[in-house]
Design a protein around this nucleic acid. Structure first.
Lengths: 246, 246
DNA sequence: CAATTCAGCATTGTCGACACAGCTTGCATG
DNA sequence: CATGCAAGCTGTGTCGACAATGCTGAATTG
């Protein structure tokens, strides 16, 4: 896997920027990977000592995490890693449906042939991977997001791209670790991905938009049905698997 | 107990508790109002002294402004109030179209009768206001956003609501001050607003979504045509690049 | 024995100060 | 006279310390 790390920011100064920036990305990664489980209480002195920095940059990093909805803060009380409830997860799907269908429409309008080609190559790589151990599709977890990343970038809408890549997709990854959700229905997703790419390549905006909308709606449906019996509390908390990352 | 009137010290300001929060809101307001014009260079000691606080809380407020896309920061260089280019403005319209059409759909599904009623009352107030001095519709500038705010809230989708109310609508207000855009086509907008409310009241999700989409598309079209002769670069490059102040 | 109050502590909020980077300016030199 | 270089200055990045607030726990009292 080349980069499951999204290039959310615009330019490419990969190495040294500011300290707060690096800590922010490290924390972001640690959260979506599950190294910091949901509900973990984050104390500023603790993390500052853990990362070997002062509280100043760490506070700024936490501010950014808060705006990105990865941690929840309460004034004078503290911060905790977000615990995605089922309701918020379904809300996320609705927002994704709206944003990504627009991204698909714009991608069909603005994507260059090279971008379409790279999209096809990524899709082919995942297909081969899925052909090896079909059914499990472990790699599909990140591969699926690679696909959506490319379409978001292909929209050539910087604002839309930032919203999807910098905000929503981190929440998606967070959900997948918190619910330990393996990518369900891999073959169906593959077919849908192919059709979306075909529509984009053909420049059919309406079709691309509709297919993407159905794609995400179907995923939402699957998730909703899957957890329908497990948790029947519309507003309640999510039953997180309290497995530690060892 | 003490139900009558508690001490006026802290009634219920959920976010006015910390100093950084207040400064953030003050700065946010100052920017969208135009008191801090676009491109204004923001220096931390200057603003800190202006607001009578230290640099710590001000830095956190600036971080939040940065994430909300109201200021642009460059490491070791400084921060400036964003200058919305025409391209970014059109991008904003695309994002709004996608998000608000979904909000209208969800509002048609989830809005209570009380919410619909308040929506209608707001619309009626604006209509009377526009009846007084029709054509100018000064109030319509904020009134239009009131309308969209209520629909966003009516979606009962917290994530969608936060995205619209906390991020996009501030950018919309910022654009209106920067471009000194008076609300064009007021009567048409009124008609469209009424139809949207009717669709929402009727619970017609598809219709509400489509009408909202057309509503925003028409506004985008108007803006695009209006500035077509002033800056004519389609959607390739940003016509108003970030120029140096000097 | 239970409820309440108060003292102690941990953590967050805020502040002032130091270090480093980038820009400006003045001088020296070709 | 133009240009390169160096020194100063402005401003950001980072740090440690102090103050304020909320939580915890035990002791006391009805």
């Amino acid at each position: 896997m080349s980069d499951s790390q999204p290039q959310g920011n615009e330019t490419l100064p990969p190495e040294a920027r500011t300290l707060a920036e690096r800590v922010f990305q490290q924390l972001q990664d640690a959260i979506v990977r599950g190294e910091l489980p949901a509900g973990t209480r984050i104390t500023e002195p603790g993390l500052a000592q853990a990362y070997g920095i002062s509280r100043g940059p760490l506070r700024e990093a936490m501010r950014r995490l808060e705006v990105h909805r990865l941690i929840e803060r309460e004034p004078h009380v503290g911060a905790r890693v977000v615990r995605l409830s089922m309701r918020e997860l379904l809300e996320l799907f609705d927002v994704r449906e709206s944003l990504e269908s627009m991204a698909a429409r714009l991608a069909a309008r603005n994507m260059t042939t090279e971008e379409v080609e790279s999209l096809r190559s990524v899709l082919g790589a995942h297909e081969n991977q899925a052909g090896l151990d079909q059914g499990e599709a472990y790699y599909q977890r990140e591969g699926d997001l690679d696909f959506h990343y490319l379409i978001a970038r292909g929209s050539h809408n910087r604002m839309l791209m930032n919203m999807l890549c910098d905000d929503l997709y981190y929440l998606v990854r967070l959900y997948r670790t918190q619910y330990s959700a393996r990518g369900a229905r891999p073959q169906r997703a593959f077919v849908e991905h192919h059709r979306i790419v075909d529509a984009i390549a053909a420049g059919d905006e309406e079709l691309a938009e509709m297919l993407m909308r159905r794609h995400i709606t179907a995923a939402r449906q699957t998730v909703a049905e899957r957890y329908a019996m497990a948790l029947d509390d519309g507003d309640g908390r999510a039953p997180i698997s309290r497995r530690r990352m060892s």
